[in-house]
Amino acid sequence: MEELFSIATKAIFIENILLANFLGMCSFLACSKKIDTAVGLGFAVVFVLAVTTPVNWIITEYMLKDGALAWAGMPTVDLSFLQLICYIAIIAAMVQLVEMILDKFSPTLYNALGIFLPLIAVNCAILGTSLFMNTKGYGFVQSTVYGLTSGIGWLLAIVGMAAIRTKLQYSSLPPGLRGLGITMIITGLMAIGFMSFIGINI
């Protein structure tokens, strides 16, 4: 239990997939202009991460790892060179699922997200989490928690950024910084704020 809690705080605050690893920046920058869009995309990412990470774990554990196919009577087969392509395929399938669900139940959000919804498939935060999960050697439950909480960390970051950008409409930014420039700077400042639990050791 404590270990899971530690994984969760790490994924949300210290090793925030966006603010510490800077993965998933493009949709973060592009879809953080309005809070509602940001919340929608954020939850889509949480869902995709929470599903793909454990599924990818199962794939790795029972099919790809060296000797993972022992249950099928092939203990010498090593398919780990297929890791990236398998992960991407799983992620793309999940994103397709999310897209279909959104199109059915929330067409407004579907339209607002536009191209960025299918682009979750190539959102590096998603692939990054699966690969980190792999290098960290997590088990099934840990991977699920890790995927879910990385998503929550990403959601927090994009929603906070969207609220700040809404507030910034009342600021008088220097012309050269308007748009992406100030967003990058705020991302940096947010990263400082998210470092509050750094050095945590449970």
């Binding site: 906070g160 609220a163 704020g193 509050s196 750094i198 050095g199």
Partner: peptide, 20 residues
């Protein structure tokens, strides 16, 4: 947080981000 036994500064910064 064993690295830093003071939290007020970072807590306020963190909440500044989420105040909007």
């Amino acid at each position: 947080n064993p690295a830093y036994p003071e939290g007020a500064m970072l807590a306020i910064l963190f909440m500044n981000i989420f105040a909007p």
